[in-house]
Design a protein around this nucleic acid. Structure first.
Lengths: 133, 133
DNA sequence: TTTCGTATTGACTTTAACGTAAAAAGGCTG
DNA sequence: CAGCCTTTTTACGTTAAAGTCAATACGAAA
């Protein structure tokens, strides 16, 4: 079981560059430990990186992703803070649900385009079979 | 029934700026007609704008969105082109399905965070009730 | 016709998210 | 210890997607 990951290990695993990971660190999205000057990433850091990349795939900005990650690790807090947290959760959830609908619509449209393409393919096939020019 | 939309009508409907619409036009994503110098958007243009914004919400770049819109309106074409089109469709679909999984995971995590927050809220409530500091 | 408000065009600026290049610092390998 | 490789730091460059600003231009109203 591996305690730490080097920066190059992670860049290879996730297909990103060292520049990217250092940039994320500069933005406060990950804070790897150091052995001397070298960065050492814990499994926890690795998980955060996964979260970041997932957020990016969904079109969130690094600032938004930072906020979401902060939500995950939010301390207990008092009533007001908890209410604020729950508001943020609701807002994010609404966004994600909208994205879900967007995806469904787009998938349906892709189905349509594909159906049309298949139909035209089969028509071409018929012409080949019958020798129609 | 309205034949044309002005640029400001559309900016108000979609909460974007005129600069944005002109930029999309410069990128070849929409091509409104002109009356003199003034832009006139057809319902079809309006639909394309909707598609663009949907694509943006899903994190696609304008270049990708342009490609997808081109797929929708692609001419019949010959067998090779149709096969290429279907490959593109498959690739997009795969991307969208990945985004769907990403969303599901994120929603589950939000549920977790919310559950934790609710629990802490109720604990605070108990302390209030019992007068515990 | 002057004026007012809205549109257009072009140029320049900005922001996020990295890319690229240069210089110095370890660290291991023979 | 010299040579080589990787890593780090610093600084500047780049790209996409607009924002901002200035100079008109147009159409309608007064």
């Amino acid at each position: 079981m591996q305690r730490y990951f080097t920066i190059t290990q992670l860049t290879q695993e996730f297909d990103i560059t060292t520049r990217t990971l250092r940039f994320y660190e500069a933005q406060g999205l990950v804070t790897p430990q150091r052995r001397g000057r070298q960065r050492l990433y814990t499994p926890g850091d690795r998980t955060r990186i996964k979260l970041i990349l997932r957020g990016k795939r969904l079109g969130f900005s690094l600032a938004e992703i930072k906020e979401m990650i902060a939500m995950y690790g939010s301390a207990p807090g008092e009533a007001g803070q908890l209410r604020l947290l729950m508001q943020k959760i609701d807002a994010r959830r609404a966004e994600l649900l909208e994205k879900q609908r967007d995806i469904e619509l787009t998938l349906l449209e892709l189905d349509d385009v594909e159906a049309g393409a298949k139909k035209r393919m089969s028509e071409l096939q018929v012409r080949e079979d019958t020798g129609t020019p």
